[in-house]
Design a binder for these strands. Structure first.
Lengths: 144, 144
DNA sequence: CCCGGAATTGCAAATAGTTTGCATCTGCAT
DNA sequence: ATGCAGATGCAAACTATTTGCAATTCCGGG
């Protein structure tokens, strides 16, 4: 049984062609994808699938903790990425929207600190860094 | 001229009743608001305004750097808050969606580090911490 | 103070993203 | 192999947001 099938089974989800393909797509891409990107990729791979199924699958998997769903500053749609134990953050270019992953996360101690200070049970965080990539910066896109 | 009128003028925006009211609302609330929340608040205050105007105003003001627009994990709509020089982050309850502000931000050095490492021109970041508030935690909403 | 042009607003209609109802199909335990 | 709970496809509904256009308002110059 493949690693992906194991993930599904352990979450109590049926292992279907579409689910395996979607998880595989999220695993291979190193960047977060919108539902439609996943759908397009499925089509490219000739996996029969409907956009509703993609949405439903992504939601179900989020609920089961296999993937994470989030929104980006000023973007009108949701992005999804595989849940990773060693989590990463992204550097998002305000000019061209390109995202690149950043290694390392400086927030573990901070979370503990907050937890102690607030009585909340912290489960995680989302951090995105915004800026201009070298190309957009030199193209003057950051002049306001 | 009020502080708010100055903000508008300095950004090159006309000072209209709706804009002043919207800025005032965002300034008074200590939490981020969705467009509709702003609209409802305007109605409450008997400020004549249309939902499109609210959206347009919020967008224009984001572009001019007066406010910030962002998305929350798993929420289908955008939130807006006044831009603050001393910025804050929020602790968001996964159970009841309540947000509370957290004082202090541990990321300034981290940004410099990233800037040095990547050649990007960093302009800021968005950090939200997710967890369960004491009420939701004891109500067992975090058991999966 | 009044006027004109440009910016802003209201309204209604369009769009984008996402969700849902229901009939059909499929994976998996027996 | 068989049955049924869970998954999918399709079309229609919904929610959040955007847009075109005509009417209105702001603001600088006369």
């Amino acid at each position: 049984m493949s690693e992906i099938e194991t993930m599904l089974k352990e979450s109590g989800l049926k292992s279907t062609k579409q689910r395996r393909a979607i998880l595989e797509i999220l695993r291979k891409k190193e960047l977060p994808l919108a539902a439609e990107d996943v759908y397009i990729e499925l089509k490219k791979q000739n996996v029969p699938a409907n956009l509703s199924t993609v949405y439903r699958t992504l939601d179900t998997m989020s609920e089961h903790g296999l993937i994470q769903k989030f929104g980006l500053m000023g973007e009108g749609r949701a992005y999804y990425e595989l849940f990773r134990v060693v989590h990463r953050h992204f550097l998002v270019c305000i000019g061209c929207k390109k995202m690149i992953p950043i290694q390392g996360c400086p927030l573990h101690e901070y979370e503990l600190e907050i937890e102690a200070k607030t009585d909340y049970k912290i489960s995680g965080h989302r951090l995105d860094i915004y800026g201009y990539c070298p190309e957009c910066a030199s193209a003057g896109k950051n002049i306001e």
